[in-house]
Computed example of a mutant assay.
Amino acid sequence: MHTQGQPVTITCEQCYTDVTIPALNHCQQALCPTCHHDLLSFRNAGFQHSLAFALSALFFLVLSLPFNFLVFKSNGQQHSIHISDALNVLIQQDYVSLAIITALAILIIPCVVLIGIVFLCTGYLTNRRAPSSRQWYKTVKLLSQWSMAEVFMVGTLVSLIKVTSMAEVSFGLSFFAFIGFAGCLTMSLVNFDKNRLGLWLYKGRLPKPEPVTKDTATISIQRTWALLLAAAVLYIPANTLPIMHTQLFGNDEPSTIIGGVITLWQSGSYPVALVILVASVIVPIGKIAILGWLNFTVQHQYTRGKRTRARFYRLTEAIGRWSMIDVFVVAILVGLIRLGNTISVYPGPAALAFCAVVFVTMIAAITFDSRLIWINRKALND
């Protein structure tokens, strides 16, 4: 069996344990013995695969822009959209911030991440460390969690199910190109082992995370509480105000998130209703509750269930961005359904509030220092 590299020592960023890892075989992973965080993995030709998928994703991204994305037909009228059209309509409706957020999440950030992966993988495979390699490494690590192309693709499929009862929808070439883009982006990230690349960049030893002190622990707890409080306050208008308005023959029909779930359920679209319920209702509430519980336990120095709490923390990191599905549904429907007084869709004020809930909870997960689960704050030095 092919092995990779010599034994290395990595400091776990989630519990601050120093772990010596032997050479790994193909498809092996090294987990932290304390918190079970994924430290290192190895796949034969992993960086070659990551590079190939990244280049393919960039190619598909270029193809997804110039052609029709979706075509909407109703009562003899037809309207087609490009991805850029949906952004332009949001801007025309004075939702510039929502257009910027959507563009960043599904186009700009994924593009930057892919360029960084291409740059870093090429350097790794040719064993050339460019002066900017470490900056690109930090950028890819930071932005990969904010890349939401696959979430947008799921949101598109949900929006199609919502409108099939109103009209006929067909796919353009850009739709299939975007599927290829999202799929290749995901596979590129799966094969991209950030820690292994970091060991190469830093010549066998990853830089240690900043140590925890009493001051940094207090700041982490206070910031997390502030962000969770803000998210809880924003969650109220996000669920009580309309997330979109549908104008049908001059009549305005506002729709809230819960109202959309109920409508989908009553129409028989049970799987889609459950997806929206989980992503837009249960996940945000669950994330706020879990992070609040974790912050409370570290503030009051709980010592039980450390591994369970660490698993819940990783869960909040993994699922948080999927709540953006409903926001992307609005973005697609606003750009797609534009037939004047016959039928048109407009964004509602809840769209921005819900966006803010998702982002604030994601930042709260970042500000929460998971090492406090394992470290006794009373024993820390200032």
Rank of each mutant, 00 (worst) to 15 (best):
V275Q: 12
V62Y: 09
A273S: 07
V169E: 02
D94A: 11
F181E: 04
V71I: 13
E317F: 00
L189H: 08
L294Y: 09
G180I: 06
V327M: 09
N295T: 12
T263G: 07
V154Y: 03
L24H: 00
L63V: 03
V358S: 05
M187E: 11
F42A: 00
L160N: 04
P349K: 07
K306Q: 14
I117H: 07
Q48G: 02
G46Q: 07
I319H: 11
A182V: 01
L104F: 10
Y95F: 14
A356S: 13
F67V: 00
A30I: 06
I115T: 08
A232R: 00
L65Q: 13
A217L: 02
A379Y: 11
K162G: 07
G335E: 04
L229K: 10
I343V: 15
N68S: 11
I221R: 15
V329H: 10
G305F: 13
Q6H: 15
G260S: 15
G5F: 06
Q92F: 11
Y302D: 08
N68L: 05
F69S: 00
T246V: 13
E253G: 06
T34I: 09
P110T: 03
V345Q: 05
R43V: 08
G348H: 09
T34A: 13
C35Q: 02
L70W: 06
T17Q: 14
Q301K: 03
H82K: 15
L228E: 01
G123D: 01
C121Y: 09
S267W: 12
L201W: 10
W136C: 10
S255P: 04
Y95I: 02
I276G: 10
T263E: 12
T34Q: 15
S170H: 12
Y346A: 08
L274A: 12
S41Y: 11
P211Q: 08
A149D: 10
D193K: 04
R196H: 08
T186H: 11
G260W: 05
T213C: 02
V329F: 07
